[in-house]
Design a protein around this nucleic acid. Structure first.
Length: 274
DNA sequence: CATTACCTGCAA
DNA sequence: TTGCAGGTAATG
């Protein structure tokens, strides 16, 4: 579910609610596999009485900074939600971790499909995570040159490469389709077949698609919510993703759906010629 | 490369 | 009942 714009929206809302809060304890871990490392017991001990200094994001990871130089890294995967609610709000069977805060509220991890994961990382663990991730596409280091370098020598299809987090970090299935539609590039084109103008257009398409997603506070198709339970609005502004059969907003040709790299993919067959 | 696994819910 | 879903890791 959540890609960069959704995770960034969660980050902003979480930061507002959590910055400066002290963790009283971990009240419940209903699905222990959520805690990837260390063990659930160790996590409870480590979080108790820690103060949350801030919430950052890297790629699709939320990074909750603690006052002992450790970081709670959270990946929402498909259906994860990080919700901050008063302790008396009832929780349902999909709430898998409950952290109690010093203001009478709780941080709750809600995750229908149970794919989301938490890791408690020290500086070394964070460095290991960082080493696997490519450019942050909304930061100044993500230039056309950086994209060209990331794709250099790759003879595989461009769409799976956009989903490869070690090249550009944070793009998922929705924004990959949107970026390619904006750039008017067919998802089956190989990276090494793109000319300079197409690379420039792809770079601009990635930035524009993600930037619009952040501005609209994310795309809520089904599950995505921010820390306050609010959905986003970007679902009303998608051009290609999920629009099979609808007219292309640019040329009117019906949007087509195909499978690329085992992922559902949406294109305008006229604007995005192979 | 592709396939399978991890999970649940929902629509066809 | 089957297939599909915004993600990723592991395995042929």
């Amino acid at each position: 579910m959540p890609e960069l714009p959704e995770v960034e929206t969660v980050r902003r809302s979480l930061a507002r609610e959590l910055a400066g809060r002290r963790i009283v304890g971990v009240r419940e871990i209903g699905w222990p596999r959520t805690i990837a490392a260390p063990s659930p017991d160790e996590l409870c001990l480590a979080l108790c009485n820690r103060v949350i200094e801030g919430v950052d994001r890297r790629a699709k990871y939320l990074l909750i900074r603690l006052d002992n130089a450790e970081t709670l890294a959270v990946h929402l995967r498909m259906t994860g939600q990080m919700l901050v609610v008063p302790a008396d709000v009832p929780s349902d069977k999909h709430t898998h971790v409950i952290v109690t805060l010093d203001d009478g509220r709780e941080l709750r991890f809600h995750d229908t499909r149970k794919f989301g994961r938490w890791w408690l990382l020290n500086a070394e663990g964070l460095a290991a995570l960082e080493s696997k991730l490519g450019h942050e596409p909304l930061e100044s280091g993500f230039t056309v040159e950086a994209l060209r370098e990331g794709l250099r020598g790759r003879r595989t299809k461009i769409k799976p490469l956009l989903l490869d987090q070690s090249i550009v970090a944070g793009i998922g299935n929705i924004y990959a389709d949107e970026a390619l539609w904006l750039a008017q590039i067919h998802p089956l084109r190989t990276a090494d077949s793109l000319n300079e103008a197409e690379l420039v257009a792809l770079h601009a398409g990635i930035v524009a698609a993600l930037d619009q997603g952040v501005t609209r506070r994310g795309t809520t198709l089904v599950n995505y919510r921010d820390a306050n339970g609010e959905g986003g609005e970007n679902q009303h502004f998608l051009n290609a993703y999920g629009h099979t059969g609808d007219p292309c907003p640019r040329c009117g040709t019906p949007i087509e759906r195909l499978i690329v790299g085992q992922r559902s993919t949406h294109i305008c067959p006229v604007c995005q010629v192979f």
